[in-house]
């Protein structure tokens, strides 16, 4: 199986940087990766196994944040998991390895408030221009409060 080969090669190459590999169903593979070596792992996957295509980045709020990088090539689909601590939500951009990742990283920034370092374009992607600071909708502790409606052109609060 292709997945077994990828798991074997990854653990050989990166050793303790890779943990908790699994292959729950055909053509699906999960591996947990240390935050520091993420770019190297992606570069290695890209150059050795042709994983050029990043499908998306999924964030999950489990107390700490878990980022899932879904890669795909013609044969299989690999998901790299990275844990980002809630206290220090920082991660490095992978845009220099996968240029197409920029929109997904911007979305992660908007939705979870994880600061992505070295991102080529760090403006908000989906939130509106007047979105309040420190509001990250997909965090589990965020609840929606309808902001006071302001009609442009009228005096505020009238």
């Amino acid at each position: 199986m292709k997945e077994d080969l990828i798991i074997k090669q990854l653990t050989e190459k990166f050793g303790s940087g890779i943990s908790e590999t699994s292959n729950p169903s055909p053509r699906r593979m999960f591996a947990t990766v240390n935050k520091e070596i993420l770019n190297e792992v992606i570069k290695y996957l890209r150059d050795t196994f042709n994983f050029y295509h990043l499908s998306t980045i999924t964030g999950v709020d489990k107390g700490d944040f878990e980022l899932n990088y879904h890669f795909a090539n013609e044969l299989t689909c690999v998901t790299l998991r990275v844990t980002v601590p809630r206290a220090e939500p920082n991660i490095n951009s992978i845009c220099e390895v996968i240029p197409g990742a920029v929109l997904y990283e911007r979305e992660i920034q908007d939705m979870y408030g994880i600061k992505v370092a070295n991102i080529p374009d760090g403006r908000p992607l989906v939130t509106s221009d007047d979105w309040p600071e420190d509001n990250y909708p997909l965090r589990k502790d965020w609840t929606f409060e309808r902001p006071k409606e302001v009609i442009p052109g009228e005096q505020n609060g009238d």
């Binding site: 729950p24 169903s25 699906r28 499908s55 998306t56 999924t58 999950v60 899932n68 879904h70 795909a72 689909c77 998901t79």
Partner: peptide, 20 residues
């Protein structure tokens, strides 16, 4: 409990859902 990634070729291209 569990998670799954589902990929689908929509008319516009690859559609991906991650369900946990």
């Amino acid at each position: 409990p569990g998670e799954a990634i589902s990929r689908y070729e929509a008319p516009r291209g690859e559609d991906l859902h991650y369900v946990k």
